[in-house]
Simulated assay, not measured.
Amino acid sequence: MPGVAGPDREIRGYGPNPPKIRWENDAKVAINIVINYEEGSEMTFAMGDGVNDGMYELPFNVDEQRDLAKESMYEYGSRAGIWRLFRTFDRYDIPITVFGAAVALERNPEVAKKIIERGDELVGHGYRWIDHYHYTREEERDLIEMAMDSFDKLGLKPEGWYCREMSTNTRELLVADGRFLYDSDYYGEDLPYWTFIDGKSHLVVPYSLVVNDCRYIMGTGFAAPSDFVEIAKRTVQQLLDDGDDCGRMMSIGLHPRITGNPARTHGLAEFIAWAKEQEGVVFMRRNDIAKKFIEQVPRPETPEDRPNR
């Protein structure tokens, strides 16, 4: 619509003929586990924000002052939960992607060291865990630059980006910046796809909030770890036999302050052990999914060169 900021909507997608992608080891389903590492960068009175952030175990709020209970629940993720998750990934020898907020990693650099040691992928998750749509284009550009400078000092080189909530300027800023292979600020696909921004091709590697542990605490899904395991298994089973011969990707979104709690980690481990036994399934980092896709669906020169669009 003329005069409306932001990218065009892309409703049609691949339609009935998506590309027949295969992943590492000729797998049909690529599972990407994402750790959203935000603890210590969230909005708090302690950091001068005048508000206490959400995504909290109980729907209680302390207004107009610090909420020490809520702060401590976030700190569970950085003190205990993240390390329980890393031990689980080490035990099952699987790669992951970390959506990391720069300030969270600055305040707990041992986590950054562990990401590097394991060979995991960092995706830029903002300078802080904040909604980018609150900021002007110039402010958002500065926030992206501050985040990338911070990651560089920690020895991390993100190839991807995922905001808490993107703005209508985010994707244009990422393309203009030139350092990003892809972004994941999109929920509308089970496969990466090419889009065009200011005449330049740009890769989108979609994310999902369906197999996501926010459903433990937001009243829309998981009452017990068995609920998480059930929906995760059924997602894999459907993608393995989705009515065609096309491969697809699956995103699992986790937070150390949520799934880092023991019972939920136990459910995650149950699913990982099961998935590793399934033929045609592989765990991959998000940047590796992007590169494997590009091998099979090369960067298009024009919008008309895109497959089945």
Rank of each mutant, 00 (worst) to 15 (best):
P2H: 13
V4N: 12
A5T: 13
D8P: 03
I11E: 08
G13H: 09
Y14W: 14
Y14C: 08
N17P: 02
N17I: 14
P18W: 00
P18S: 07
I21E: 03
R22D: 00
R22G: 01
W23K: 03
N25E: 10
D26A: 11
A27T: 10
K28M: 12
K28D: 07
I31W: 02
I35K: 04
E39L: 09
S41F: 11
A46E: 13
M47R: 14
N52V: 10
L58T: 11
L58M: 08
F60A: 11
V62R: 08
E64P: 00
R66E: 15
A69N: 12
K70Y: 08
Y74C: 01
Y76K: 04
G77W: 08
A80G: 02
R91E: 12
V98T: 02
G100P: 03
A104Q: 08
A104S: 13
N108G: 00
P109Q: 06
E110N: 12
E117G: 00
R118I: 03
G119N: 02
D120T: 01
L122P: 00
G124K: 01
Y127M: 02
R128D: 03
D131I: 12
H132L: 11
Y133F: 14
H134M: 14
H134N: 14
E139A: 13
E140T: 13
L143M: 15
F151I: 09
F151N: 07
L154N: 06
G155M: 09
P158G: 11
G160I: 08
C163P: 13
E165M: 15
T170A: 05
R171T: 15
L174T: 09
A176P: 06
D177L: 07
G178D: 05
F180K: 08
Y187D: 03
D190T: 06
L191Q: 12
W194H: 04
F196K: 06
D198L: 06
S201H: 07
H202G: 06
L203M: 13
V205C: 11
Y207E: 05
Y207N: 10
L209R: 13
V211T: 14
N212M: 06
N212V: 05
R215I: 07
Y216N: 06
G219P: 04
G221D: 02
A224M: 13
V229E: 10
E230I: 00
T235Q: 13
T235E: 14
L240M: 08
G243V: 10
D244V: 01
M249R: 09
M250E: 10
S251A: 12
S251I: 11
I252H: 01
L254K: 01
H255E: 00
P256C: 04
T259G: 05
G260Y: 03
P262H: 06
P262K: 03
A263D: 12
H266A: 15
L268K: 02
A269R: 09
E270I: 04
I272W: 06
A275I: 05
E277A: 14
E279C: 01
E279D: 15
V281H: 09
F283G: 09
R286S: 10
R286C: 09
D288S: 08
I289T: 11
F293L: 05
F293R: 00
I294D: 01
I294E: 11
E295Y: 00
Q296R: 03
P303V: 08
D305V: 06
N308E: 11
R309N: 14
R309F: 10
